[in-house]
């Protein structure tokens, strides 16, 4: 039943048009940058976020618009579908995306370990509060889930169903 619903939503020509592909590239980059800025500032310098005033709304606006564009793009939603409902090109794209996500997670885990060991060795007084940890985890999630989509978006080229 679910499989047949997914089958009825194949990629259309407009999903791989110049507008859609370049839009996905730009929106993914804007999404990552604005989300990272907002979460990092909110975690470590919330007073700075208050001080920049209108700048905060601009960053939030960019985040909102890019997430809408992101959500409306069928390529990104199709990559979240079950493997068996995907075409073989989509399956290869999805496994490539998983590989990038996994590598990113490994690199981030390794970097966290290195930073923790260094802080411990140099006996730097560094503690993270629950709120800061939450925002840091959000950054990790963005890196793991959105970064692979951004990489894929920069790799695929626009295509038409005709010649």
């Amino acid at each position: 039943m679910i499989v047949s619903i997914f089958d009825k939503m194949p990629l259309r020509e407009k999903d791989l048009s110049h507008f859609a592909v370049y839009g996905l590239r730009i929106s993914s980059i804007l999404f990552i940058l604005s989300a990272l800025i907002l979460t990092t500032l909110q975690a470590f310098h919330p007073e700075l976020l208050e001080r920049i005033g209108i700048g905060r709304f601009i960053v939030q606006g960019i985040l909102g618009v890019s997430s809408i564009f992101f959500a409306l793009n069928r390529l990104t939603s199709r990559l979240a579908f079950p493997q068996e409902t995907l075409d073989e090109w989509e399956q290869s794209l999805k496994s490539e995306m998983s590989n990038i996500g996994y590598s990113t997670a490994c690199i981030l885990a390794l970097l966290s370990c290195i930073v923790t060991v260094l802080l411990y060795n140099f006996q730097v007084d560094f503690t993270l509060h629950a709120e800061q940890l939450t925002f840091l985890s959000l950054n990790f999630m963005i890196a793991m889930f959105i970064f692979p989509i951004a990489v894929i978006a920069w790799r695929i080229k626009p295509l038409s169903s005709r010649n």
């Binding site: 075409d87 090109w89 169903s161």
Partner: peptide
């Protein structure tokens, strides 16, 4: 044939044929 017609005939989506023709993708 168009890419879409060929894709329908062999049971894939048009983009698979398109990227295959361009050499951006290797068929199974």
């Amino acid at each position: 044939l168009s890419r879409k017609e060929l894709a329908d005939a062999v049971g894939v989506n048009f983009q698979t044929i398109g990227y295959l023709e361009r050499g951006d993708y290797n068929a199974s």
